[in-house]
Amino acid sequence: MTNTTLEITKLAYRWPGRAGFSLIVPHLSVAQGESLLLLGESGSGKSTFLSLICGTILPDKGRVDIAGTDIAALSGGVRDKVRAEQIGVIFQQFNLLPFGSVMDNILLPLHFAPARRKRAADATTEASQLCAALGLPAGVTSAKATTLSVGQQQRVAVARALIGQPPLIIADEPTSALDANSQVAFLDLLFEQANTHNTSLLMVSHDARLGERFDRVIRMEDIAQIERAAA
């Protein structure tokens, strides 16, 4: 059993429709329980990189191993399944389905991940516990997602990413919509929960000030090259 949650080897991806542009990542690995901050300006290819890790787009070359499975070699449906089982995703904002309750939103990934559902023996109880641990008010689970503040919504997104204990959490600038105080509080809670569950955390941001909390900080340009073919 490997203790590497994410390992990327010789990955190459060419953007469709933009002839000659390609993203090349020679190597990147994230160990179990490790937290990694990936810094990159907009246009550095980090969104594409995240899509490659999540398996919603397929690299032209190379391997993307998630908990020991090379998803680049899998078919679309199976990749979606691996994402559901192994990865918790937190977006920048608008994480939640506005028409669902908080509970609906937290339980959503379990619907696509039977193994993760099994791990969360009593899913609703676990969801409530996560909410409490993330400092959300009691009884929040039955509220409509849209009635929550932005900060609360981001914390619900953390609960959703953590439920059923996937080995990897990917967060795409989750604090950019929050003010400075909320950012600190949010990151405290996120790290606390990630440590408790020994979950690897890969966060993407353009804000270098967040770096001190992470085990490792990498700049996008250090691991990846964007190549423009000689025109």
Binding site: C54, T56, G76, G77, D80, K81, R83, A84, E85, V89, F91, F94, N95, L96, L97, P98, L108, P109, H111, F112, A113, R160
Partner: peptide, 16 residues
């Protein structure tokens, strides 16, 4: 689009 992206991120297949 956002709603569908959330579903996709949670592991829903395009077919779903």
């Amino acid at each position: 689009r956002r709603e569908m992206a959330i579903f996709r991120a949670m592991g829903a297949r395009p077919f779903t």
